[in-house]
Design a protein around this nucleic acid. Sequence first.
DNA 1: ATGCCTAATGCAATTAGA
Length: 266
Amino acid sequence: MKIATYNVNGVNGRLPVLMRWLTEERPEIVVLQELKAPQEKFPETAIRDVGYDVIWHGQKSWNGVAMLSRVGEIHETRRGLPGDPDPSQSRYIEAAINGILVAGLYLPNGNPRPGPKFEYKLAWFERFIEHAAELIGTGAPVVLAGDFNVMPTERDVYKPERWLKDALFAPEIRAAFFRLLDQGWTDALRTIHPDETIYTFWDYFRNAYGRDAGLRIDHLLLSPSLANRLVDAQVDRHVRGWEKSSDHAPTWIELADAKPRRTRRT
DNA sequence: ATGCCTAATGCAATTAGA
């Protein structure tokens, strides 16, 4: 089963690219970020027509998250973080699908740093870490997927020295990311590619994609019972080269089927 | 330090992205 995250940077402006990617790759579960569309302008029909159940949390102009499934109904468990520092921003959606709890998130960018936006990023991250502790504490199979707006290590940035003061790479943000991982989450992309330079975002500026001047900021974190099933993790980087592409590329994991529970002999 | 590009809003220029 393939689970993907894709920051579409405008779900309506991006609809042809999104539809092409969905029909070519057929991921079973998808989380989307940066819909940039109000609730009533989400392209529900187009997505259902290619075989997906879908839920979404829109917002005018900015943010917005969605979840798609073609492996059974989406059972929404929450939208918005508990204790969200600003509930008017649509950044979190969570649901149970086919025996897996899926969290789709769009962590704040946080620039400029310092400033109120950076404070909001830190506050949001803290709330998310608290909630993630509850999720992993249940022992359920959970995936935290989305645009984290964090490059965890120097390997995840084309020129680390230029990003040290940026809200995406600042020490306190990277420390927060590792506190999250220390709860027991597995960074799927880095586990499959331990030493490789692998990016999920290339700026529209300065031919960044052509120069491969990228960042790894879209992540899929797995609870222990899902990490056992991880067989692959990749970035569909060719999609970034398509006409009218998002500045992010779809990023995904492949999971083995769950082992059937051992039946007790009677 | 700033613009480079792109989307949304709404129709010009601003805000936000990362």
